[in-house]
Amino acid sequence: MQLVVARIGRAHGIKGEVTVEVRTDEPELRLGPGAVLATDPAGVGPLTIETGRVHSGRLLLRFAGVRDRTGAEALRNTLLIAEVDPQEVPEDPDEFYDHQLMDLDVVTEDGTEIGRITEISHLPSQDLFIVERPDGSEVMIPFVEEIVTEIDLEEQRAVIDPPPGLIDDRAEIASARDTEAAAAGAAGETAPEDQA
């Protein structure tokens, strides 16, 4: 099975290095020297990682055969794809590969069906589940432990405890007028239109 593990960013320096946006929890395993990766678009690869290093918090890679800035810049926005055994699972029991999470049913803790995961979006701050609801609409659910309370691969479901307003429009928002009316009522005041 093929998994996207990174996207190539801009060239770094003049010797063929590129920045990469890492899309795997195991960069040391997937993006180490000697790794041969397929690419999207396919015509660019396969690419063999020659060297890798971290610079200012970003991973820099150099590929075999890419020796200058022009060659590195030509790789920009290319997706790097690793071949992974479908039975392989991450070492950490709280981590999952995207393919394990795709098509899971999403339900609330009381069993209410929300939909199924159709896509996983990897953002810099967190990952998001894109969930297709039974009516065809989509909802985005942050993949954080406060909201996603359980991933049950045997039952093929993700259990969530969503805050108000995340999956529906039941957010509890009081308008300024309601707040003022409540304060006036608590103080024993009457609104001007109620006065005789």
Results as ranks from 00 to 15, higher is better:
residue 73 E to N: 03
residue 106 V to N: 01
residue 70 T to Y: 03
residue 34 G to Q: 10
residue 121 S to Y: 14
residue 128 L to Y: 15
residue 103 D to E: 15
residue 138 E to W: 11
residue 187 A to M: 13
residue 140 M to S: 11
residue 18 V to N: 08
residue 110 D to S: 15
residue 53 R to H: 04
residue 97 Y to A: 01
residue 72 A to W: 13
residue 54 V to F: 07
residue 49 I to S: 10
residue 118 T to C: 05
residue 175 S to L: 07
residue 112 T to C: 02
residue 77 N to R: 15
residue 109 E to N: 11
residue 26 E to L: 09
residue 11 A to Y: 02
residue 161 D to K: 15
residue 142 P to D: 14
residue 69 R to W: 04
residue 21 E to Y: 05
residue 66 V to P: 03
residue 22 V to D: 03
residue 33 P to V: 03
residue 109 E to Q: 13
residue 57 G to L: 00
residue 46 P to I: 05
residue 119 E to F: 13
residue 127 D to A: 09
residue 196 A to D: 15
residue 150 E to V: 01
residue 120 I to A: 03
residue 145 E to Y: 12
residue 44 V to L: 08
residue 7 R to S: 13
residue 108 T to V: 06
residue 137 S to C: 06
residue 149 T to G: 00
residue 64 A to T: 07
residue 19 T to G: 14
residue 149 T to D: 12
residue 95 E to M: 08
residue 140 M to G: 14
residue 104 L to A: 13
residue 142 P to E: 04
residue 174 A to Q: 10
residue 171 A to C: 02
residue 114 I to E: 10
residue 135 D to W: 01
residue 37 L to C: 09
residue 102 M to P: 10
residue 118 T to S: 05
residue 121 S to W: 13
residue 23 R to W: 12
residue 28 E to D: 14
residue 68 D to S: 09
residue 7 R to F: 01
residue 34 G to V: 06
